[in-house]
Design a protein around this nucleic acid. Structure first.
Length: 576
RNA sequence: GCGCCCGUAGCUCAGUUGGAUAGAGCGCCAGGUUGCGGACCUGGAGGUCGCACGUUCGAGUCGUGCCGGGCGCGCCA
């Protein structure tokens, strides 16, 4: 609809320019849905953009444009010049009604497009190391990354969801030590460290208490899940693991159990990764050494203080960075570079990294390194999301990873359910802080909780179908209704809104901003609920033709709500 | 100190890539509504879009400088 109109306008502008003897290409004008209804179905700003070039008042140009446009092949019912030189266009009513038929014909394909066909895209997200349960911050990232992937799929892209993690390294050693310490403590062979020393890194750390050694590492993981693992090990092995090295059996057991928990959490969000990539395999396959060698080739690597550095300051970045520590161990950024090169080598046209804003510092270094290695760093798109705060009763809940005073995804889901969790996590744009209002999320009042409001609006379409069935009325197919009977302002407004869905999806996919979908769906429900409620629009009436038309609109609403909810990964219940 | 992000109604936040009289939900006030599905409607109060310059036909949106908040600025990840 809009495309056709744009083409017609484009042609009209060209004719207008030609008539004025201007051979240059036409300006990039906009055709948009105005905020106000009385500004027409669409508005075009071309005349104002041409004013300076043609040295004539914009309103005069607008008049001429309207004359050139004519009825645009039967599309336009009425056009007028408004304000500083807008051309406001009203489509003939039949055009809107056609949209409804198209929606019904497209069914569950409505809103999808082929824009990205042939494009391989990787979305990497969550990527938490298996050191503990996923926190609310991971939850935001999980939902965000998954919704971005869903949007890209809906626009025809070939999407791979990937989870990257590291089960080697210092973090995991500390994890093993933490579990072993708890194991020994429970068996009475070690003393737990004092609580105040755990809480405050400036306080002294005892080697032993009452003759028992303190085994827990100073920077150990304090969460209760560590002790749970230790208890499970005691159930299985008793005291048999006292001599087991912390970095072997304990580390491996902890990793396995925690990763199983993480997967279970993701499952509960209906979130499934296609590929799990382990940093260790990059080492095993020599990718790390290789990338370092290749970087050396570029001349952007130097040795200093016993360490190996990337000469990134010369690339316009704030500082040089260590790639390999003087201990011989790489920093995290080297495998990161190797990993991103592998992404390119695997043939992805676009690489999307979803990560927390605390990782923002590394972004330019990865891009620059890709440039050094001969890849286009701009094909890696970083979606950085800000932190999540939880609030309840007007107070924010403080969270700390190290001290394990954070709220896990599991806890939140158990309180509000996966659908509400997803909706609340997605409804803010990524770069804005997200305040998770626990009281509102827990509310089962469908008028208050926006997630339920959407699902209710969808369920209502099924309620109407059930009622119709009781009366022996069947839902109409696309060819079995006369949409011209839908002519009230409420009905036209609803159809217009439904007609925007494909553009909303396209824009959200393009900008990697799923929250647009959430807001759009609220608009749809906001038009639908009052229309149903208004008894002058009674859907099921004695007038069979009108009933069919209104049931058709009901189906159109259902299609859009169902597809929209699916893009957000939410269920679309038939009854609530 | 430097970098990135945020600042819009009492609260939580959108704002179609620079458009017309800045919107939604919740909350508040006054009416109406007894319903195919209950969760609805109408009206009202509430804003110098953090502040100031600039760019131009036109700025919440772009630029610069301040103010306030968040996150970074390790041979931690």
């Amino acid at each position: 609809m809009r495309e056709k109109l744009e083409n017609e306008l484009q042609a009209a502008v060209s004719r207008l320019l030609a008539a004025a003897g201007d051979g240059d290409s036409p300006p990039a004008f906009a055709v948009e849905v105005p905020r106000q209804d009385d500004h027409g179905d669409f508005a075009c700003n071309a005349a104002m953009l041409l004013a300076k070039r043609l040295r004539r008042p914009p309103r005069e140009i607008a008049e001429q444009l309207i004359a050139e446009l004519g009825d645009a092949g039967g599309l336009v019912d009425r056009a007028e010049v408004a304000g500083p030189g807008f051309v406001n266009l009203w489509l003939s009513g039949a055009r809107w009604q056609d949209v409804l038929v198209q929606i019904l014909a497209a069914g569950s394909a409505y809103g999808h497009s082929e824009a990205g066909v042939g494009q391989r895209v990787q979305v990497e997200f969550v990527s938490a190391n298996p050191t503990g349960p996923l926190s609310t911050g991971h939850g935001r990232q999980a939902v965000l990354g998954d919704c971005i992937a869903r949007l890209l799929q809906a626009t025809g892209h070939d999407v791979t969801r990937e989870y990257y993690f590291n089960n080697g390294g210092r973090q995991m050693r500390v994890l093993g030590q933490s579990v072993k310490a708890r194991y020994l403590e429970i068996l009475g062979r070690a003393a737990p460290p004092p609580a105040d020393a755990l809480a405050d890194a400036d306080l002294p750390w005892p080697d032993e208490i009452d003759g028992l050694p303190v085994a827990f590492p100073r920077d150990g993981y304090q969460g209760e899940y560590i002790a749970d693992i230790a208890r499970a090990l005691i159930d299985e092995h008793g005291e048999g693991w006292i001599e087991e090295p912390a970095e072997e059996g304990f580390r491996e057991e902890a990793e396995q159990r925690i990763f199983a928990e993480i997967r279970a959490t993701l499952d509960s969000l209906d979130l499934h990764f296609d590929v799990y990539t382990n940093e260790k395999t990059l080492y095993d396959e020599g990718k790390i050494e290789q990338v370092l060698a290749d970087l050396r080739e570029t001349g952007s690597v130097f040795e200093a203080d016993g360490a190996t550095w990337l000469r990134s300051e010369d690339l316009g970045l704030p500082r040089d960075r260590v790639l390999v520590k003087s201990s011989g161990e790489p920093t995290y950024i080297l495998p990161d570079i190797a990993y991103h090169r592998e992404k390119f080598r695997r043939g992805f046209e676009t690489i999307i990294d979803v990560m927390g804003a605390d990782h923002i510092e590394q972004v330019p270094y990865v891009k620059a390194a890709m440039g050094l290695l001969g890849f286009d760093g701009d094909r890696v798109e970083f979606v950085m999301h800000q932190f999540v705060t939880l609030s309840s009763g007007g107070n924010t809940v403080k969270q700390s990873t190290r001290r394990a005073t954070y709220i896990t995804i599991d806890e939140l889901i158990s309180q509000v359910g996966a659908d509400v969790f997803r909706f609340f996590m997605i409804q803010r744009k990524p770069e804005a802080h997200l305040d998770f209002d626990l009281d509102l999320a827990k509310s089962e009042d469908w008028t208050k909780n926006p997630a339920f409001a959407l699902q209710y609006a969808h369920a209502r379409t099924h309620g109407i179908e059930r009622k119709a069935a009781e009366l022996g009325v069947r839902m109409p197919g696309p060819g079995e209704l006369d949409p011209s009977l839908l002519e009230s302002s409420g009905e036209i407004a609803l159809i217009r809104k439904l007609g925007e869905f494909p553009e909303v999806v396209a824009r959200a996919a393009e900008s990697l901003e799923p929250h647009h979908v959430a807001y759009y769906l609220r608009d749809v429900a906001g038009l639908w609920n009052p229309w149903v409620q208004d008894r002058s629009n009674r859907i099921l009436s004695d007038d069979a033709a009108l009933t069919a038309a209104r049931l058709g609109l009901t189906l159109g609403v259902r299609i859009v709500l169902a597809q929209g909810l699916a893009l957000l990964g939410m269920s679309a219940p038939e009854r609530m």
